[in-house]
Design a protein around this nucleic acid. Sequence first.
DNA 1: ACAAAAATCGAACGAGCGTTCGCTTTTATT
DNA 2: AATAAAAGCGAACGCTCGTTCGATTTTTGT
Lengths: 238, 238
Amino acid sequence: MSQAQSQHGRAADFRNFQADFPLQDRAIYQTLFERNKDRITTNKAKFAVVNLEKIFTATFELTPRIGFPMMSLRDLSRATGLSMGGIYSYIESKERIAIMVKDLVKLVIDELLVRAMSLSSAPLTALETMIREHIFAAEMLQDWFSFLYFETRSLPHEHQEDSKNIELQIESAMHELIDRVRRDRDIACGNSPIIATTLIALIQDRYLKPWKHSKSGESADDYAQQVLALMHCAIEHP
Amino acid sequence: MSQAQSQHGRAADFRNFQADFPLQDRAIYQTLFERNKDRITTNKAKFAVVNLEKIFTATFELTPRIGFPMMSLRDLSRATGLSMGGIYSYIESKERIAIMVKDLVKLVIDELLVRAMSLSSAPLTALETMIREHIFAAEMLQDWFSFLYFETRSLPHEHQEDSKNIELQIESAMHELIDRVRRDRDIACGNSPIIATTLIALIQDRYLKPWKHSKSGESADDYAQQVLALMHCAIEHP
DNA sequence: ACAAAAATCGAACGAGCGTTCGCTTTTATT
DNA sequence: AATAAAAGCGAACGCTCGTTCGATTTTTGT
């Protein structure tokens, strides 16, 4: 029940989502290592996983307070316990850290989109799944999602575009699904775009403002439920 | 009709709001100069207004692409046409630029809040006014609002707190107004917090993502109207 | 246990940063 | 027009940054 052999177990609540979500703990850094083998001089996953974890954990600890550009590699060296040279066997440059974050987030979102859109038979279910899983994934990878949003400006131009496109893709997918739901029920579609915008903004609000949401202590399940309730209301009353 | 002698002309649409809004063009920099006289070595407003405008215009041109910490004062010098020393007669340090932005935004928001909350007799009108004027003010001072949001991390800790508190204040004011509207109509108040969160997120979405909103070409009036419609729907269907 | 290979180290380098201050130019006053 | 005051300038300073690379330690394979 808790072990996922299928890559695509459906998960209606956060507990089940967590049980099936592949990118947790070591697996995150294993994936990061495999996707960046060319640029990493260390060959053995055994070392890479441990040190990549140190590097990203430290980055996510330092960055929210002072911002990525102000985090020096000496700060990072101190916080990881690695030397400067040690760090440079995992990254070719400082900005590569930001690029790796972007790639991981893009990986997660892309799969999430593909999965939800492949449920083409039931647009409302697809929409609900997409939102719930987006909230859940962002809950588990909060540091990553939040970093990408705030530090997009530290990326090279091409990667900045990627970052914006991730959001535009999700938004247009949601827009499309909302329209499909409405057409099935003969509801006017005039304000579908603002509903899609609202949904994304609410998903982002939760992972961007922990100082607001962690205070209230509301669970991811409760939050998702509230967002979905608002959505149902908005879809039905155009 | 277009000239505002009262400080508090009500404005239901963007045109009227613009006509009454005091912080435009020169007036922004005049205000900035007066509020920072102590820290500015130049004495005459005549010079200060011109050069402060250069400094902030250039900052808002450079920062969205590369971020504030990566903008060097040499970049700023080049973009303004001022020398390094010249710039330093208007700011005591680089971070003062960010602090001045925060102060101006706080000034605008604080007045907006006081005005809206003083309409205590009609909570729905107060709520609508607050949202509309927030959207309109952010439309006129888009660069300032957007800068504060993205560059909060470049502020000294005390000022970072200020920045978060601005948002928390607005949100709790909205929450309170929503509850009052609902109590007047005997509607349950359970999801009032998420409605307040939604409203702020939508207001921010517009000034934070010009690459999304300016593409669609939707006017501030239309946007405000859509946000308000969504709000009415959400308030009435708890 | 030993040698070869891989991983890690950290001092050193050049570049670019924010900031300063004595000097020049512009403005205001007479 | 002359003079005093204000504004503006930019080379220079000390510092910290990202990055490199030969030396050292740790791991691997025998």
